[in-house]
């Protein structure tokens, strides 16, 4: 097996890993780096549970080959709270009970963070369309949308 050596930064830590040509970034995060906060719901780009930020772009990590991310910066759910302090999105998800089982939560938090970085004052419709790629089967989205809107308001003030 020919392994590829890749250097990246994950949540601001410089790391190196070896991967097979067919490994995805999700495989490497979960299996090699044991960063299991990023979840796999489908492996085909349809559920958003594996959302990460790759060089400022929101991507499904199950669709990105690990061998092709040399030199890039990756942010995952594990890097969202800084020094143990929760991000306003995380706080509002807890306050609003925006998670039931919680399996979709890391992906939705990452996606919502990417939205608020681009659009600090989104409308409800904008939030709904932005998060349309993140499936949640438990909540019916109501409390998730409210949590994102409230976090946005809090971050603006």
């Amino acid at each position: 097996m020919n392994k590829i050596r890749v250097g990246v930064s994950v949540n601001n830590d410089k790391i190196e890993f070896l991967c097979s040509p067919e490994d995805t970034v999700l495989d490497v995060l979960r299996d090699n780096l044991r960063l299991t906060g990023t979840k796999e719901g489908c492996g085909t780009g349809d559920c958003g549970a594996c959302s990460i930020i790759l060089d400022d772009k929101l991507v499904c990590s199950c669709l990105v080959l690990a061998g092709e991310v040399e030199g890039s910066e990756i942010s995952t759910i594990e890097g969202m709270a800084i020094d143990g302090k929760l991000h306003p999105l995380q706080q509002n998800f807890l306050k609003h009970a925006a998670l039931q089982c919680g399996i979709c939560t890391p992906g939705i938090l990452i996606a919502a963070k990417a939205l608020l970085e681009r659009n600090p004052d989104p409308t409800e419709t904008e939030v709904r369309y932005w998060l349309a790629g993140n499936l949640c089967r438990c909540t019916g989205y109501d409390k998730i949308i409210r949590a994102v809107m409230d976090a946005a308001a809090e971050m603006r003030s």
Binding site: L35, T36, G37, T38, K39, T76, I77, E78, M80, A81, L86, Q90, F93, L94, L99, G102, I103, T105, P106, L109
Partner: peptide
């Protein structure tokens, strides 16, 4: 069990 679940620490 909230903090584990919003930080990715909870084990599924």
């Amino acid at each position: 069990d909230g903090i584990e679940k919003v930080t990715g620490q909870a084990l599924y």
